[in-house]
Design a protein around this nucleic acid. Sequence first.
DNA 1: TAAGCAATAT
DNA 2: AATATTGCTT
Length: 293
Amino acid sequence: MENGFSSPRNDAFPAGLRVLVVDDDPTWLKILEKMLKKCSYEVTTCCLATEALDLLRERKDGYDIVISDVNMPDMDGFKLLEHVGLEMDLPVIMMSVDGETSRVMKGVQHGACDYLLKPIRMKELRNIWQHVFRKRIHEVRDIESFECIEDIQMMRNGSDRYEDGHLLSGGDLTSVRKRKDFENKYDDKDFVDPSTKKVRVVWTVDLHQKFVKAVNQIGFDKVGPKKILDLMNVPWLTRENVASHLQKYRLYLSRLQKENDLKTFGGVKYSDMSQKDFPGSFGRSKPSQYAPK
DNA sequence: TAAGCAATAT
DNA sequence: AATATTGCTT
């Protein structure tokens, strides 16, 4: 039912994935290169973040994904991450020996799609193509939905239960109501296409990353749903969607913050939140034991 | 008017 | 469980 799996010419897809590896430690560089090649990826390595940035700028479309160490002499891995996110929108995986929550948090906040802890094994690398794949799926979805924006907006405003003329007074409910003529793709029989029903936004990793990117671009203290929405440039999103997500995001961050404070001793607790703790539910693997307040 | 927050609804 | 909506406050 979903597309994506039916990619026709992408039979060999995961193979040949173009990976750029950045690490100042030549040993790790070698190891990673070897492992990645074993996964039949196409590997480029470099030991400087600035060098990586040059490579990426040189051929904007020459790589599919970046794996970067966090600690590097010439440039902070986070800085690199930031540049990549802003300039070419590639998935970036961060890696580090340091699994401290605040660092992981920083990586996440800056838009890393994954955060791997060294030592890294094949196990972790075999599946990294998923980030590229996910991105492609959603690019397709974005384009598709672009044609339907108006219809979606129609539905949003039309099927509201505020028909009784209460909320409609605010004349800024866009020009949706005006256009009833052109775009004769569908007849105006008021048959709301059932395939586009509930329109609940699902915050995929990609969408979330876009969100995070926007937040960082604005600055953490100045953010508001409106600004984020504008920066994200995702046509079908509403301000309310973003507001809701922002609210959740903040809760999530403060939760991490708390855990981070409470920690510091104990043992080596959990060590990574790379995969699981992220997608729709950034965080919370245990039940809800947090003060409802 | 935009935003945040918490409760509550879907 | 995740997201939407609402009502109240700033």
